[in-house]
Design a protein around this nucleic acid. Structure first.
Length: 262
DNA sequence: ATGGTAGGTCTCCTA
């Protein structure tokens, strides 16, 4: 049975309920993973999602920050949540589908503006978060699993609009790229988006601060879909729905999709 | 080099 999933940093699920509904109605992924819901779990507008065919949800939430949720057409069971780096933030939720696939939904800390942990505590927290992710997946090899989310790192030169100009910009510094690679290696995670689309510029985020995000096109690929080797061959049809960045009251992220024949 | 926009919330913090 093929099943499709999408991951989307929604930047307030309550404010953007209309475009979440639009995405679900028009694209119909079986599973939608959201980050930056910025809502307590009991205030997520789940009735609206249920009404159009997504009655199942697992989620974690903080009051005004962070927050992750997995919406599903079919039943999904909670399968744990991590508090990496001991931040006490709602940045991860895992769910298990009836087909036995485990989905990890992450919102990795953005890391502040200065890429130096001595001058910027947030950057240290980001690196610590990635170290704990790495250690976890090293200690316990994930199987039949998909890891998605806003990982807040654009690893490849063609994942950013200018590799050279972003080398010292948080999200594309060599130390972050290395930390992400170590996390990926520790779980033997396969980057599904780049497995399907190996060549060319690919972005999932464009700053709100650009005058004309579409024309300037100064994007970064911060949002990822990874899978374990036992199911990575089943993946296909990856895409990024750039159109959604231009919708009414948009998120600054576009949703990333993949399909798995399982 | 700087400042630009957006969301949430006990007015500034986070991205």
């Amino acid at each position: 049975m093929p099943f499709s999933l999408a991951t989307w940093n929604i930047n307030s699920v309550r404010l953007r309920e209309p475009i979440v509904l639009k995405l679900l109605a028009e694209q119909g992924p079986d599973v939608l993973c959201l980050q930056e819901c910025k809502s307590p779990v009991d205030k997520i507008p789940r009735d609206g999602f249920a009404a159009i065919g997504y009655p199942h949800m697992v989620a974690r939430g903080d009051k005004g920050y962070n927050g992750v949720a997995i919406l599903s057409k079919t039943p999904i069971k909670e399968a744990g949540d991590f508090d990496f780096a001991g931040l006490g933030h709602a940045r991860h939720i895992a769910g298990r589908l009836e087909n036995g696939v485990t989905i990890h939904n992450f919102y990795v800390p953005a890391g502040g503006d200065v890429p130096d942990r001595d001058k910027n505590e947030k950057f240290g927290q980001k690196l610590d978060y990635l170290t704990d992710m790495r250690d976890h997946f090293h200690a316990e090899a994930p199987q039949k699993s998909i890891l998605v989310g806003d990982l807040n790192i654009a690893p490849r030169e063609d994942d950013v609009w200018s590799h050279k100009q972003l080398l010292k910009v948080v999200s594309h510094t060599p130390i972050e790229v290395e930390a992400l690679a170590e996390t990926q290696d520790a779980g033997k995670w396969v980057d599904i988006t780049r497995q399907d689309i190996p060549d060319g510029l690919l972005y999932s985020w464009w700053s709100y601060r650009a005058k004309d995000w579409d024309a300037a096109d100064k994007g970064r690929r911060l949002d990822h879909i990874w899978a374990t080797p036992d199911i990575s061959n089943a993946a296909h049809s990856s895409r990024i729905l750039r159109d959604a960045r231009g919708w009414e009251k948009p998120s600054d992220h576009a949703p990333v999709f993949a399909t798995f024949d399982l």
